[in-house]
Simulated scan of single mutants.
Amino acid sequence: MFFDKLKQPTISYYGDSTRETEGFFTHPSAQADASKKQTLTTLDKLPEGTVSEVYVSYDRAYTPKDIYSFAKKYDMKVLWNAIKTEDSLSGNQRPIGFPGKDSEFLKELQHTSKTEVDQFKDALAYVNQHPTWATTISGRPDLDLSNRIRYIDQNGVTVYGSVVTGPSKEIEKFVKTKRIKTAKVSEVELWNW
């Protein structure tokens, strides 16, 4: 920020290469595609000792508590959650959400006694009061926060997709479950988990 002028910051997203492709997640109202099968084929071919970052979409929207309860059965981390903010996709809206329970960014927010859901709602309300800043910082003119906040107030905060990371074979087990509707591999690295 320079005086009262705000510049768009350089933002690093999970899976920058995936960000350029169409659709990170599949909305619960949309039909499943072949991505789950393709992801399982990719994960099956990866050797032990690799770690994958995968975008998963669930068969329906779940509470964050349900997601974390289900995910803790697997040796993986939940880095980010896509929040359901509409009953069906309208136009080309990209998801909004908040850091998952294992995100390094979330540790910076632990100073408050509020839950992550309450913090998310507070953040949306604050950002909605400053639409020009929100558009500049996010680089997204499609935020439509008033309608999204209204939907969340009426329906609660539910997660329909997550970015997860962990040993490729463990992620493969997770993706095979019936709860996962679609999945897309973002990054794969050699790593000592």
Score class of each variant (00 low, 15 high):
D153C: 07
A134H: 06
D153I: 00
L40T: 04
I137Y: 14
L43E: 11
R150F: 12
Y58T: 01
P99V: 10
P99I: 01
W133G: 06
Y160I: 00
A32K: 07
L143Q: 09
K114E: 15
S52A: 14
K65S: 15
V54F: 12
D87L: 01
E104P: 15
Q110S: 15
L109K: 01
L124Q: 06
K84C: 00
G100Q: 05
L106D: 13
N128S: 13
Q31T: 09
D118K: 01
I83Q: 04
T50N: 12
L46R: 03
V117I: 14
V159I: 10
G156W: 07
N155W: 02
K121V: 08
K101W: 09
P47N: 07
T39W: 06
N92C: 05
V56L: 13
K45S: 15
Y126I: 01
T63Q: 07
R140T: 05
K45R: 05
V127Q: 12
D144V: 04
Y58S: 01
A34K: 02
I83K: 00
A61M: 03
T26V: 15
Y160L: 03
I137N: 08
D75C: 01
P141T: 06
T115S: 15
N81F: 08
Q154S: 10
P95D: 15
K37C: 06
K65R: 11
D66K: 07
